[in-house]
Design a protein around this nucleic acid. Structure first.
Lengths: 207, 207
DNA sequence: CCTCCATGTTTACAACATAAACACCGGACG
DNA sequence: CGTCCGGTGTTTATGTTGTAAACATGGAGG
């Protein structure tokens, strides 16, 4: 009645469940992500979610897909806002990726935890990760043509960058480097240093 | 009776449970890691584990500690086997880390999943990760003194390397880059390229 | 107005984590 | 040698979870 799509009895329960699921992950952690808790927060019975998701896995998958959509949108926006040369746009999308992960830890966790889903190897997951890598390979290739990045197969270069970025945000989000945060560096500074380091690793010339 | 310590009724049930837990993670995945399944595999009742671990978390923690001990031992061995100069030893320990993660995916998963334990932020975890970073910082400092690595604060350099390595093995172990394995590269080749890339990122001179 | 189907609810069952009460068994001590 | 005792494993019990099946409801289309 307020503003939602207001479809049936509840009014877009599906979306409400996805929101609740994300909240749970953010507040209690992924191990507290239970169908019943999600239903509780949405104010419906514990079996209601099964009208929208056949499975707990399918609910999680839906959250993951939403997360990837948001990530993709964020990266595109930041890319479009960057200077129009290939190198700046590449760097911007990399930064956008890191910032997305740090600003939406709950989303990033579901998207890459790998422990939340029962059957490891869902097709959609590989597909989305694959897409990110493909985009990055294209960016690197453009930068190479402009002489801004060392020549060579762009695939391992993209993999190296993705590895660094993914590793950094995973360590930060999982609280594995808390003791570093007591150091003279802020999180943003460390982010910059790590990103700079890996960009130098592929022979990128900073503007 | 065979060879185990043969202590009480069962004969070192604690160790048997840890072994079983690791097996479960390797075979079924972390979501199949239940106290009851572990007990089943050890051939005891589902409540027996509570004589050795107060909690499911404590069992997992014990597996994690074992994993870190094995990792530390592996790295030390490979370091000792490398040529005695600082640079080779540093590279050797980095490679050892990667190989450990790829050869013992179950251990690595428990050690770094972050979703298996209910309370995120167990002290022991931060401690062990912190140790690895401290060691790396020491190595980098030695290499810097020898002019083998670019001068500068070694902490962000170590963090960059740890991020890359952790990210790479996480992506591989979570099957996020399967489509790359169909490429002309073997896993070992990709490992070498990624590690080389990040080492160049900190201005390391390869021998 | 009435019917139907999508949506939500109740009820039910098996597996789980965990606690409490119980049973066993090997060593300590007489 | 016998008896007790604490450490180890078992049984039983409770509350929570995922999920299926039967049931209820209310808005859309006739």
């Amino acid at each position: 009645m307020t503003a939602a799509k207001a479809k049936y009895h509840h009014g877009d329960l599906r979306t409400a469940l996805l929101d609740a699921a994300l909240d749970v992950i953010g507040e209690i952690g992924p191990q507290g992500l239970t169908i019943r808790e999600v239903a509780r927060r949405a104010g419906v019975s514990h079996a209601a979610p099964y009208r929208h998701f056949t499975d707990k896995d399918e609910l999680i998958l839906a959250v993951v897909e939403r997360g990837f959509a948001l990530l993709q949108r964020t990266m595109r926006e930041r890319k479009d806002a960057a200077p129009p040369d290939a190198m700046h746009q590449f760097a911007a999308s990399g930064m956008a990726y890191v910032d997305f992960a740090l600003n939406h830890p709950a989303y990033y966790r579901v998207m890459f935890s790998g422990d939340l889903l029962s059957s490891t190897g869902h097709v959609s997951l590989q597909h989305t990760s694959s897409e990110a890598l493909q985009d990055m390979v294209a960016d690197i290739t453009r930068c190479q043509e402009l002489g801004m990045v060392r020549k060579g197969d762009p695939v391992p270069q993209a993999l190296a960058i993705l590895s660094t970025i993914h590793g950094f945000v995973s360590l930060v989000n999982d609280n594995r480097i808390q003791h570093l945060l007591e150091n003279p560096y802020t999180l943003d500074q460390m982010r910059d240093m790590v990103v700079t380091s890996i960009f130098e690793g592929i022979g990128a010339r900073t503007a």
